[in-house]
């Protein structure tokens, strides 16, 4: 019995899930109908739905980021890529007389995602072919990207009037917001692609020991390159969601600091920044947690601006939970072999 309990506590997703549940319960104390869902005109509404929908862009990017981090990399440029994606779509649509047609929206969005993928190819090239450290390589696009987005939008906030485009973020299908469905679809596809094929194992191998993987015949370079393209693809879609939400492309504000939220979501979900083993479900929970936190703070009557302060606390707690020393202190038995030895090895 005790063993079962321990197994449960030691499960990788135990702490993130517990934190999310506690945070949700905290909301319940202030908002008694927090968990209630309403069906109105065939659309589901409620706080939980809002949280899910608002977390969609972060979740999307965090999924891609999980794979990048698993290869020991990081991508700081996702926010800028999201901004560029929104800028491309909106500028293309706004710049034509048939701005509001569905065809325009489809072409605009396709172009936007294509540009994002291209930027991912660039990042991947710098990291996997030229061997530049990921943090530096993606910093290039992080800083230059917003300038690029400004160039595309001519420094204006480009608004569009296109109902199909607006639907990406505000529309409903089968009673659920489209944004949620897209994010969950990408989650499912990523999960299938990594866990039903050998991709996940190969990504982890590259992240844990790149040289040993290369000598075992793993195409480490291709894999690394691919994950940067993938995260940019995710960022492109996230950028469309963000722009669609306001039907406008704001080169300065769109996706600002979203890379930090995405990284935080990954880390909360239990994927180590040192690379290797990753958990997509963990990332899903992490993204939920961050969005719930952002929702909870105003609900508790605390100014929303302090959001970052709370995130900082979360970061500290996560770091502590991952540190072997802190775990040893926290563990019930001081010399519990479960906690001290596994990490000391």
């Amino acid at each position: 019995m005790r063993d079962l309990g321990l197994r449960f506590v030691r499960h990788n997703l135990f702490w993130p899930t517990l934190a999310l549940v506690l945070l949700l319960l905290l909301n319940l104390t202030k908002t008694p109908d927090f968990f209630s869902l309403r069906l109105q005109d065939g659309h589901l509404y409620g706080s939980l739905i809002d949280i899910l929908r608002n977390s969609a862009p972060t979740l999307l990017i965090a999924l891609g980021m999980t794979l990048v981090i698993a290869t020991r990399g990081i991508d700081l440029s996702v926010g800028a890529v999201a901004a560029i994606s929104g800028a491309v779509a909106c500028t293309y649509m706004a710049g034509s007389p048939d701005e509001s047609t569905a065809g325009r929206a489809v072409i605009g969005m396709t172009m936007a995602v294509a540009v994002a993928v291209l930027l991912g190819v660039w990042n991947g090239f710098l990291v996997s072919v030229l061997g530049i450290q990921p943090i530096i390589a993606t910093l290039v696009l992080m800083t230059a990207g917003r300038g690029l987005a400004m160039l595309i939008t001519d420094g204006q906030i480009t608004t569009v009037n296109n109902s199909l485009f607006a639907k990406v973020s505000t529309g409903f299908v089968l009673g659920l917001p489209i944004a949620i469905l897209i994010a969950l679809a990408v989650f499912a596809i990523t999960a299938v692609l990594t866990r039903r094929t050998a991709l996940g194992m190969l990504i982890e191998a590259v992240g844990i020991n790149p040289e040993a993987s290369r000598l075992a015949g793993v195409r480490a370079r291709t894999i690394t390159w691919t994950v940067y393209v993938f995260v940019a693809f995710c960022a492109g879609i996230a950028g469309l969601m963000i722009a669609s939400n306001t039907s406008a492309a704001d080169a300065n504000a769109a996706g600002l600091f979203i890379e930090l939220d995405a990284i935080l979501a990954v880390v909360i979900g239990g994927t180590s920044l040192a690379g290797g083993r990753f958990s997509l479900t963990g990332t899903l929970i992490g993204a939920m947690f961050i969005q719930t936190l952002a929702t909870t703070i105003p609900t508790m009557g605390i100014p929303a601006e302090t959001n970052y302060l709370f995130k900082a606390v979360v970061v500290i707690v996560v770091c502590l939970l991952q540190s072997p020393k802190a775990r040893a202190v926290l563990s019930v038995r001081r010399s519990s072999p479960l906690l001290t030895k596994g990490s000391a090895a």
Binding site: T197, A198, M201, L202, G217
Partner: peptide, 13 residues
């Protein structure tokens, strides 16, 4: 690992 790598990621063992 080596066998999987040469089969390619699309064909898991």
């Amino acid at each position: 690992l080596a066998m999987q790598a040469s089969r390619g990621w699309l064909r898991p063992i």
